[in-house]
Lab assay of single mutants.
Amino acid sequence: MAAGGDHGSPDSYRSPLASRYASPEMCFVFSDRYKFRTWRQLWLWLAEAEQTLGLPITDEQIQEMKSNLENIDFKMAAEEEKRLRHDVMAHVHTFGHCCPKAAGIIHLGATSCYVGDNTDLIILRNALDLLLPKLARVISRLADFAKERASLPTLGFTHFQPAQLTTVGKRCCLWIQDLCMDLQNLKRVRDDLRFRGVKGTTGTQASFLQLFEGDDHKVEQLDKMVTEKAGFKRAFIITGQTYTRKVDIEVLSVLASLGASVHKICTDIRLLANLKEMEEPFEKQQIGSSAMPYKRNPMRSERCCSLARHLMTLVMDPLQTASVQWFERTLDDSANRRICLAEAFLTADTILNTLQNISEGLVVYPKVIERRIRQELPFMATENIIMAMVKAGGSRQDCHEKIRVLSQQAASVVKQEGGDNDLIERIQVDAYFSPIHSQLDHLLDPSSFTGRASQQVQRFLEEEVYPLLKPYESVMKVKAELCL
């Protein structure tokens, strides 16, 4: 049975990233139509530049190519590739079939990587351009969430054990800070992308030097003109047959890092959902379990974690691919890159769409948070109580021993009897502590235990987050809708 299948058929496997999760716009960027249309555009740009620099290419040939950029006979191309065992030459023939007058000058002087690699770089750039505003929107939604809850005390956790208090907004800023680093890295790697350009079979530009009869300047002009037509500021000066596969490492490393950030955020949300302090959106008709109707599973956060793990592992592909590119190139890269580049971007696209949807509907339960604080705060307040007693004339050592005994009794009630923490009640009825009984409410005010959390939130948002989001103001209103 021949390899390949009808990918629109229910009898043929289709990647869930495309069929179930990723956005239509990201799927289109990695589609065959987008790819092969870009090949034709690159052939047109090459012909236009070659004509401008004096090669015998007519206006009629150029116009014929322009008129057929979208006229792609995919069936013919597939048949040609089956016959020739070469995808680029299959599309040269297919393009030439609908451009008979231009057929002889299509791909003039070029090698397969002229269309293959340059198209990949265009796709990487455009895919990054799709991700950047999506990530900015996630940051914006979380920034709104953090600002609104900047002063809401909550129990902090280290080692997932109760620690000092923080605020809900401050905790959210930990998430935002990681995503801001990801946004900066995505922008950097996007701006650092260079075009492969017009380089020939081993990167020496020998074929173009021959076409222009040894004119170095025209060869350099050709490279520059096509690079500018493709919208790049610069091209690699040095290439082998391909652009260095280190570029793929750079791009997928940034995406993998984004995956790590999203995994951490969504894990926190899942843990908070278990504590009943916070939940992701839950639709009115949504079913959490087929057997347990009360369940409210954090399905979206779980999906993000599941896909983020996949995204983090994909960076190993370009690392290994770059390491086995012998001399000017081997074909070890080809099949692998067809999979890992598309999957990385479709996965990143999915987790950003999902995280935006989550961040637009996060639900906080202040009463649950308050109750958990009441359970733990008495123990945390013991040092403040000791200091207040010393100020009232008591002995630190005597007070410490009193607190120690009462704390152990209260802990026994919590752990052995399943009761509430009654340390404060014990202190309130103990005559030894009568000098500070009137101060206990103040000493137990949760806001006095959150330090500068709310001020940190305000400063972080104003100095770091809002300036970073400013270039994306025009796209901030787009909502994230999930079908599944």
Rank of each mutant, 00 (worst) to 15 (best):
A90T: 14
Q161W: 02
C98S: 04
A102E: 13
L44V: 09
T267Y: 03
D178S: 05
F195R: 03
A103E: 06
P318G: 02
A348D: 02
M26C: 02
G8V: 10
Y34N: 06
L255C: 11
L121E: 02
A322F: 13
K415G: 10
D120T: 06
G4D: 14
V247R: 14
L311R: 11
R303F: 07
A103M: 04
G96W: 01
Q285L: 08
K224V: 05
H159G: 01
L258E: 12
A146V: 12
T313I: 08
L484K: 04
I237F: 05
G361I: 08
A335V: 10
I62V: 07
Q408A: 05
D248A: 12
P293I: 03
E463L: 13
F95K: 04
E213L: 10
K218W: 13
H97I: 01
G169H: 01
I238K: 12
G109D: 04
V168H: 15
S261H: 08
E425H: 10
T119S: 04
G200M: 07
I358S: 02
D11I: 13
F379D: 11
T167I: 06
D59S: 08
H86L: 04
F195G: 10
G156S: 08
H91W: 01
N384A: 12
T347P: 14
I385D: 15
L319R: 12
P378T: 11
Q205F: 02
P56F: 01
E213A: 13
M181G: 11
A348P: 07
R309K: 05
L469F: 02
E343N: 13
T58Y: 12
R404N: 12
F460L: 09
Y13N: 14
E80T: 13
K479Y: 14
R190V: 13
M476C: 12
P10L: 10
L423I: 04
S207N: 14
D144Q: 15
K295D: 09
Q397A: 08
K276W: 14
G418I: 08
Q184V: 09
L341A: 11
E250Q: 05
I139T: 06
N297A: 05
G4M: 11
L346D: 14
V315M: 06
V254Y: 03
G5R: 13
L209R: 03
E401F: 00
C180Q: 12
E328I: 07
D87M: 02
L331N: 12
L130Y: 13
R196M: 06
M380N: 05
Y365W: 15
F95S: 03
I358F: 15
T201M: 00
Q458A: 09
M65C: 06
I369W: 07
F157E: 03
P24H: 01
Q356G: 00
E328F: 10
R188D: 01
I265F: 12
A480V: 04
I139F: 11
R14P: 11
A143L: 11
F379L: 11
N68Y: 11
Y294S: 08
L362W: 15
S9F: 14
D73Y: 02
F74L: 13
D223T: 09
L346F: 04
S447I: 10
G418R: 10
K284M: 07
K367W: 08
G200C: 00
N118H: 15
F449A: 05
S301Y: 03
M278H: 12
D398A: 13
L319F: 15
I72Q: 11
V254W: 15
P318K: 08
R188C: 15
T58P: 06
T154G: 08
Y21P: 06
T244C: 10
T202K: 01
A206C: 07
H263Q: 13
H7A: 10
A18Y: 08
D178F: 03
T201I: 07
M387I: 14
L55P: 11
A381P: 15
I123N: 00
L42W: 03
D192I: 05
V189H: 01
L108M: 03
G419C: 04
V115W: 01
L469R: 04
F327R: 03
L406T: 09
M225Q: 00
Q455W: 13
M389W: 06
C304V: 10
I436T: 08
K276L: 08
N353L: 14
F74E: 15
W326M: 07
D223Y: 01
I105H: 05
T227A: 11
G5N: 15
C99V: 04
S261C: 04
D317K: 03
K199I: 08
Q221L: 02
G4I: 12
E50M: 09
K415T: 12
T242G: 10
D87N: 01
V138F: 15
H97F: 03
E417T: 12
R40D: 12
E148R: 04
M181S: 07
C305W: 07
E464L: 00
Q416S: 15
R459V: 11
L130A: 00
L484D: 06
G200E: 12
L69P: 01
E60D: 09
Y466S: 11
W45Q: 08
T202I: 09
P467I: 15
L272G: 05
A392K: 00
P281K: 02
Q409A: 05
E80S: 01
M76P: 02
D216K: 02
L165E: 01
Q210K: 00
V364Y: 13
M292S: 05
D420K: 14
I105G: 06
S289Q: 15
V138R: 04
L211S: 07
F95D: 07
D192Y: 09
L155H: 06
L121S: 10
F36E: 10
L468Q: 09
E360G: 01
H217F: 06
V198L: 02
D430A: 12
S448V: 05
E220A: 09
N357K: 04
F212A: 04
M89V: 05
D398Q: 06
D6S: 08
F282D: 00
M76Q: 12
Y34R: 04
I106G: 05
D317N: 03
S407P: 00
I57V: 09
T201R: 04
D349A: 10
D129E: 00
Q184M: 01
F145S: 10
R459T: 09
L121R: 04
E425C: 11
C399E: 13
N353V: 05
T167Y: 07
I106P: 03
D420Y: 14
F30V: 09
L311V: 07
L406S: 02
R14K: 06
L362A: 02
E148M: 05
I176N: 04
L211P: 03
T267C: 01
G4L: 12
I269D: 07
S23E: 08
P10R: 11
H437M: 04
E462P: 12
F212E: 04
M278V: 11
Q177N: 03
T38Q: 10
H7S: 12
S207K: 11
S290T: 06
S261E: 01
T154M: 01
T158Y: 02
L469C: 03
D32L: 11
L352R: 06
D32R: 08
A127S: 06
L362T: 15
L275R: 04
L423E: 10
D6G: 10
